[in-house]
């Protein structure tokens, strides 16, 4: 059996991932996070008299804090596993990724451990977020002046 035949044999015997089911779960959970955050924004606006811009920043901070706290308490990873990309794509995922990396490396020292590995997973988000923001900003200036 040559290598290509073997690859065919492997793909024949490997069960297919249920991508559509995972996508629906992610859509519902991710959407739920959005709805809950919107609720927080409304509460902040109504009860604390914040402007919408301020309320959005506060709501974002609250979500990040809750996700980090749940990660540190040790049960958020089980939720992430079940919710597929639903908890990874919103800002909860960003908080969770830095917090889980920090926990992993807390014994390796502040500089060589936590410092060097804090953005192990989130580094890509920051880098490519900044790069794409730069290009979209140029595109925005070119198109709309």
């Amino acid at each position: 059996m040559n290598k290509d035949e073997y690859k065919k044999l492997v793909s024949r015997l490997t069960p297919k991932e249920m991508k559509s089911k995972n996508a629906i779960v992610a859509f519902l959970v991710g959407g739920l996070i959005g709805v809950l955050t919107e609720l927080v924004i409304i509460i902040l606006m109504e009860c604390f008299g914040l402007s919408r811009v301020d309320a959005c920043s506060w709501a974002c901070l609250i979500v990040i804090f809750i996700a980090s706290l749940f990660t540190a308490l040790g049960f958020f990873d089980n939720w992430v596993t079940k919710a597929k990309a639903g908890l990874i794509l919103p800002t909860t995922g960003f908080a969770h990724s830095v917090m889980s990396s920090a926990l992993d490396y807390k014994r390796d020292g502040f500089i060589t451990g936590i410092g060097a590995n804090f953005f192990k997973l989130a580094g890509s988000v920051i880098l490519y977020g900044i790069v794409s923001a730069f290009f979209f900003a140029i595109l925005g200036v070119v198109l709309y002046g």
Binding site: T14, P15, D77, S97
Partner: peptide, 17 residues
């Protein structure tokens, strides 16, 4: 997990294989 995959508390969804 820590050496070959993701941080322990990350809990990334995994393939059935």
């Amino acid at each position: 997990e820590r050496q070959f995959r993701f941080p322990i508390e990350y809990g990334a969804p995994k393939a059935s294989t």
